[in-house]
Computed example of a mutant assay.
Amino acid sequence: MTTTTLIVEDHPLYRGALVHLMHVVLSEAITLEASSAEEGLRMVDQAENLAVIMLDLGLPGLRGVDAIASFRYKCPSALIVVVSASEDRRETMAAIRSGAKVVLSKAVSTEVMADIMRRLLNNELLEPVWITANGKIAIDEEASVKLTPRQQEILVLLSYGQSNKEIGLRLGLAEITVKMHVSAVFRTLKVVNRTQAVSAARRLGLYQISEVG
């Protein structure tokens, strides 16, 4: 079965360079192009055997971690590679927490990009990597912290000061089930109480305050 890749980049010249890069790395792959995340998401529905999605972190419209999360939802098996003009650590860690396997600075040479892509496709990269013009940058241990969708919902309600019983009624869960989820959140975030959990989640960008259910 033919492999498909998707390049999502709003700058035509740089998009063309990424398409060429992908042809060098995967000469027999079909490479699709999109100038926005919205356009790319529509293409995902038609793509067969989509292996890699390369997207700019600073796209117009849907962008950043929201774009990454949307592509992961649509195509959870695809490897997501982020390219970015920014080398901001906070943005990079957020991208990795959202599911990016590789974050590449646009200042990196095409030779280095090609090498990283080959290693990624050969399953040689066991952990997320961040590559800048200065080389490989250490990934914060916190970037690997992930919560399940249910745990994120419960964290939002914890931030509102709701009790386990109130959360259970809101989400249709038994109180003991909520307690188990809360304990799991504490272990994941390495905290001992609700205040610390909410503070840690905000600092790590693991959820946004919004309505639940």
Rank of each mutant, 00 (worst) to 15 (best):
I176K: 15
T4F: 00
S163A: 04
T3H: 12
A67S: 09
L204P: 09
Q151L: 02
A143T: 04
E28A: 13
I30D: 10
D45Q: 14
L18S: 01
K101M: 15
G64C: 11
A78S: 08
E28K: 14
I139T: 14
V198N: 00
P76E: 06
A100Q: 09
H20L: 04
L169Y: 12
H20Q: 06
L104V: 00
A197G: 06
G16C: 05
R118T: 02
V8M: 11
S105F: 04
V102M: 01
T148W: 05
A29G: 01
C75I: 10
M22C: 13
E111V: 03
T132G: 00
E48R: 09
V83M: 07
E124I: 03
E175Q: 15
H181E: 13
E9V: 03
A17G: 13
I80R: 03
R119V: 01
M180E: 12
P76M: 07
P149D: 04
L21T: 00
P149M: 04
A107R: 02
A200W: 02
Q208T: 14
M180G: 12
A51P: 08
L26G: 05
L55M: 15
I53D: 01
E141S: 13
L171I: 05
R63V: 03
P12M: 07
N164K: 08
G16F: 08
E39I: 12
R42N: 12
I137E: 14
T195K: 14
A197M: 04
I53K: 01
K74Y: 11
L171F: 06
E33H: 03
Q208W: 02
L155S: 10
L155H: 08
R89P: 08
S105H: 01
S35A: 14
T132R: 06
L41E: 06
G205Q: 08
Q196W: 08
A138K: 15
S98N: 07
